[in-house]
Structures are given as structure tokens and as C-alpha cells.
């Protein structure tokens, strides 16, 4: 019962937060100076009647409050509207860009978390040794590098100098694939450099978090007990130390996983990866309100859901959270 009430409270909060985000996004972008029709005016002698007609089609002739109500109504009907720029349904557009973004960021995020935690745990285990200092220093250097700079260096080394990997796009343009496998490999090759960039610049947080939490746990009394019981070193480390060091790792992971849908604009720009970051950036410049609102709605939902999931995961991992 208490459990259900807890869930109910969480879900209610989820809905309220979502409504707040939706409203905030609507207001935020509509108060920016400029409007989508004005951009079109410069592109060809559009008469005033033509401007007025387009304004009506977009519904921009209504007051802001009416536009907001229409927006809420359409949202409840599951309609995200029509992109002013592409004049296509926002849901179609988001579908295309989200796929690319999730592909890149899911790969990068999983790798970052898995490798970061692995490296961090080993570093903690060999605290003070050469492995520890080397990996910690290397990951911190990676963290302090600007993302676009790291990307460009990788483009130069692996793309221009070594010709080892493609440097732009998510697949070879105009390629005709002889089989599914060939296509898969082409995409994997295109994924390589942007993924590597993201791993290099993000891995440090997991190395450091995993290392510090494991070191802390290793100093606990129950570790001494485990050793005294004669458990194997490896078992002590992975089953007892890491298990107890998981909470901060889950928190950092939730933060990073929540960003999987939002794109990585710098990496997308360097590698011409058609992802959400560029879509949102261009839509802000074009005042393409429906696209911006749709994209931020998706971001908000995913971040909220991931946080919700991590809350539930805490409970599973730590009985103290459950009781509190």
C-alpha cells in the first residue's frame, strides 16, 4: 500500500512537471524577438496579403493565450503540429532525427558508462599504482578537452591522415548496399569517430565516480570481514565493494542516459551527424516553434522517465531508501 502511494505520488509529480515544462517551453520560445513569417519575407517579394495568409495558416494571427490553448488542445489529441520550415508534421521529422540521435548517443553512453566504471573500479583496486595514476590523468585530460576540438583532431587523424574512417554523415551518401550486413557495417564505420569523441570527453566522470565510491567502500569494516572470511579478492571487489558503490554510479548514469535523446550538437556539427541537436538549433534560429516544442517535449518526457526509473532502481539497490 505504502509502495502504491509512493508510486502514485511520483506519477502525479511527473504529470505536473511535464505540464510545467510544456508551458515554459511555449512561453520561452514565443517571447523571442522575430517570427517565422518574417524570415520568409526576405526570400521573395511576398506581398502583405501573402504574409497575412501564411500567418493565418500557421495560426500566428491569434493572441498568445489562444495559441497556447490551441497548442494544449492539439497536444492532448496527440498532434505536435506542422513544421514551419519543412511544412511536414513534426512527429515525422522528430522520428527521423530521433533515430539517428539515439543510435549515436546510446552507443556512446553505454560505452562511456561500461568502460568508465570498469576502468574506475580497477583503478580503485590498484589505488596509488601506475595504472591508477595513468587512467585517472588520461580521463581527466579527455574531460577537459573541448568536444569540437577533440572531434576535429579525430577527423584529421583518422579521416584525413589515415583515411581509416568516414568523417561525415551517418552512412555513405548514395550507397547501394548488397545486403543488410554491408549497410550495418557502413553505419558502424560512420558511428566510430563521433562515438569515440563522446567517450573520450565523457568517460572521466564515470572513472572518477566509480573509483572514489569503490575506494570508500573498500575502507569499510565489512571489507575486512570479507577478507577475514577468506573470500577471493575478485569476489570481494565485484560482489561486495562494487555492489555497495553502485548508488552514485546509477545517479550519474541516469543523468547521462536522460540526455540520450537531446543530441550532442558539437559532435553532430563536426561529423555532420543528422541528429536532434542540429535540428533544435536550426529550429530556434528559424523560430520553428512546433519543432522546438515537440523536441523539448520529448526531452522532458525522457529525462523525467529516466529519473523516475532511477528512483525505483535506488529502492531496489538500497533498502534504506525503501524504508525512508
Amino acid at each position: 500500500m505504502a509502495r502504491l502511494r509512493y508510486l502514485g505520488r511520483k506519477i502525479a509529480w511527473l504529470a505536473i512537471t511535464l505540464y510545467g515544462v510544456v508551458t515554459f517551453n511555449f512561453v520561452l520560445f514565443h517571447v523571442l524577438p522575430g517570427n517565422p513569417v518574417q524570415l520568409l519575407v526576405r526570400s521573395g517579394h511576398l506581398t502583405q496579403q501573402a504574409q497575412a495568409a501564411i500567418t493565418r495558416v500557421y495560426g500566428l494571427d491569434h493572441s498568445l493565450i489562444v495559441q497556447y490553448l490551441i497548442y494544449l488542445r492539439d497536444l492532448l489529441r496527440g498532434q505536435l503540429g506542422l513544421s514551419y520550415t519543412f511544412r511536414e508534421p513534426v512527429s515525422t521529422l522528430l522520428g527521423q532525427y530521433l533515430g539517428n540521435t539515439v543510435l549515436l548517443l546510446a552507443a556512446a553512453t553505454l560505452l562511456t558508462i561500461a568502460m568508465g566504471v570498469l576502468v574506475g573500479v580497477i583503478a580503485a583496486n590498484r589505488r596509488g599504482g601506475r595504472y591508477d595514476s595513468t587512467t585517472v590523468t588520461a580521463s581527466v585530460i579527455g574531460w577537459s578537452l573541448p568536444t569540437f576540438w577533440t572531434g576535429l583532431i579525430l577527423v584529421f587523424v583518422f579521416g584525413v591522415w589515415l583515411h581509416a574512417f568516414p568523417i561525415f554523415g551517418s552512412q555513405t551518401p548514395n550507397a547501394v548496399y548488397s545486403s543488410f550486413w554491408v549497410r550495418y557495417e557502413d553505419i558502424a564505420a560512420h558511428l566510430f569517430l563521433p562515438t569515440l569523441t563522446l567517450v573520450v570527453v565523457n568517460i572521466a566522470q564515470f572513472v572518477l565516480v566509480a573509483r572514489v565510491s569503490v575506494i570508500e567502500v573498500l575502507a569499510e569494516d565489512f571489507m575486512l570481514t570479507a577478507r577475514a572470511k577468506g573470500l577471493a579478492r575478485r569476489r570481494i571487489l565485484w560482489s561486495h565493494a562494487v555492489r555497495n558503490a553502485l548508488l552514485p554510479i546509477v545517479t550519474s548514469s541516469a543523468l547521462l542516459i536522460g540526455l540520450v535523446v537531446s543530441g550532442a550538437i558539437e559532435v553532430e556539427t563536426v561529423f555532420s551527424w543528422p541528429g536532434m541537436g542540429r535540428l533544435v538549433y536550426n529550429s530556434v534560429l528559424n523560430r520553428d516553434y512546433p519543432v522546438i516544442e515537440g523536441a523539448f517535449l520529448v526531452f522532458a518526457i525522457v529525462v523525467l522517465l529516466v529519473n523516475f526509473a532511477s528512483d525505483l532502481l535506488y529502492q531496489a539497490l538500497d533498502p534504506r531508501v525503501r524504508e525512508a
Binding site: 583518422f158 581509416a164 574512417f165
Partner: peptide, 27 residues
């Protein structure tokens, strides 16, 4: 396969990364 890319290419790229010797790369 007018505009195809071959499976071999990917393996080469992957192998290349492992070797990562510029001279070999150019060849």
C-alpha cells in the same frame, strides 16, 4: 552493385585502427 561499399572495406578500416601505422595506412 553500382554504388556499393564492400564488406571488406569495413574490416580493413577496423584492422587499420589496430595497426594504426601511417605508412601502412597510406598504402
Amino acid at each position: 552493385m553500382p554504388a556499393g561499399i564492400r564488406r571488406r572495406d569495413f574490416l580493413k578500416r577496423a584492422g587499420l585502427l589496430a595497426v594504426a601505422v601511417p605508412g601502412v595506412a597510406t598504402v
